[in-house]
């Protein structure tokens, strides 16, 4: 589990660092793959639970990234949206946020403390991605990183979270990704770019 958590967090940092939306999408797909394999390996051979974990793996690691890649194809950028901060600054801020959050998190009552820290780190990385990245699709990927953190904690719960809840959450996630993809397309059509900084007109 520790290696999987380390890989998930490293991929989360990658989403904050990389410039291309396609690269970030692949990193999130890899997170889905690691989570799916971890979930299957913890099910212990019970066929119903294995089927649910398998379905979740396919949706998280393949279907959702495919939806995102389609959205990216519909919203081609002539030039990459320039980040407002350098890679080093983004990584430094994200590292500081993650370290503070992990240090401040009390035991959550889940036997696997590494998974608890990993989940909190991923949720923080997801929020940080939304805050520091400007393209709409990268902000959506930030949401997915945060959701992956929650799923990591759900996998680590002894006996797992009920399949009905996991599938319900997944359905909602696909719904949100679909709607967010439509938004990304509409924003691109309206302002000629997926850069959400161009949408800053509402102020008091």
């Amino acid at each position: 589990m520790s290696a999987a958590v380390a890989a998930l967090v490293a991929l989360g940092f990658g989403v904050i660092a990389v410039r291309r939306r396609s690269h970030a999408t692949v990193l999130v797909a890899l997170q889905g793959l690691i989570l799916g394999v971890t979930a299957i390996s913890r099910e212990g051979g019970e066929s119903g639970a294995m089927a649910v974990a398998g379905a979740i793996l396919i949706i998280r690691a393949a279907a959702i990234p495919l939806l995102l890649l389609l959205a990216r194809r519909r919203t081609p950028e002539r030039t990459l949206v320039a980040p407002t901060t350098s890679v080093a600054t983004r990584l430094l801020v994200a590292t500081a946020v993650v370290l503070v959050a992990v240090a401040a998190t009390p035991p959550l009552g889940i036997a696997d403390r590494v998974a608890e820290h990993g989940a909190v780190a991923l949720v923080c990385l997801g929020i940080a991605t939304v805050v520091v990245r400007r393209p709409a699709l990268l902000q959506l990927l930030g949401i997915l990183v945060a959701e992956n953190g929650v799923y990591l904690l759900a996998i680590a719960v002894s006996g797992g979270v009920p399949a009905a809840i996991e599938l319900g959450v997944l359905f909602d996630l696909v719904l949100v990704v679909t709607v967010a993809g439509a938004f990304a397309g509409k924003i691109h059509e309206r302002v000629g770019s997926g850069d959400t900084d161009l949408l800053r007109g509402l102020r008091d």
Binding site: G126, A180, F183, T196, L202
Partner: peptide, 18 residues
Amino acid sequence: GKRSALEAGWKYLVLTTL
């Protein structure tokens, strides 16, 4: 479908989902 409405809808979607 206005620019301002897209901004409001996107902000709502992202912040409440997070």
